[in-house]
Design a binder for these strands. Structure first.
Lengths: 117, 117
DNA sequence: ATAGATACATCGATAGTCGATGTATAATAG
DNA sequence: CTATTATACATCGACTATCGATGTATCTAT
């Protein structure tokens, strides 16, 4: 079956734009998805380790941080960009296929009643 | 995070159209998705059991079958239809959200020019 | 006979995610 | 001065979904 984008893809997509630290990556994903996508730190940090071990991102401790706890900033590698491309393609096909089977009729627009607002 | 459609949703969507037996459901999903979605029988049959135990589908042995091995035909229940609706909605939002995060190649917010419209 | 499609089912392994817990720093509230 | 909240890292056990292999059985075609 091999599902969709998973957390790895989302992380790669975020760090593709600019290097960022773990906590910030999680916040950015929530922000971009209007809080529809979020996950705990028990998911995030293991994923970051795996991605780094696979050579898709590179992390280094931010020495310039003055306020608050230390940050580890992750940068996407060339390999990571290639992989992100594959993930985007796979997601695209998967998403389209699920729509086909699920019969994703256009999400019926809720008729707006004249109440309130 | 709670991902997208999963096998349960696909199965429900197929039996929503017409009652069908397990093996046929698997073939139908492959057909509808042009072979992009498929899964082994080690996934299929446990899912059918779970769906039945949850009251979302109802299975009975096909007595009218004359050729080949016995078939167990599954029909969607009222509960199943309701659940399928929720699954479609959830998939719709999930899919849209992943697109937002993943497809973020250009993040540039368009500066609003004073001349628009 | 043998292979392949149909059709059911179970079992152990694995991978992805969740929830809880722990450490530490800094700012703000009481 | 203490408690709480936000930031920021990390690990651990548990659970669930899915995969791959295996098994039984029927029927058709070679």
């Amino acid at each position: 079956m091999q599902a969709g984008a998973n957390v790895s893809g989302l992380v790669l997509a975020v760090v593709e734009v600019a290097p960022l630290h773990g906590y910030g990556i999680a916040r950015e994903i929530e922000k971009r998805s209007a809080d529809a996508l979020s996950f705990g730190e028990g998911t995030l940090y293991p994923v970051l380790k795996t991605l780094e071990k696979s050579g898709l991102i590179e992390g280094k401790w931010d020495t310039a941080v003055e306020r608050g706890p230390a940050r580890k900033v992750y940068e996407i590698t060339h390999e990571g960009k290639m992989e992100l491309g594959r993930i985007r393609d796979a997601w695209s096909e998967y998403s389209r296929s699920v729509d086909l089977v699920l019969g994703q009729k256009e999400t019926h627009v809720k008729p707006r009643t004249a109440t309130s607002s």
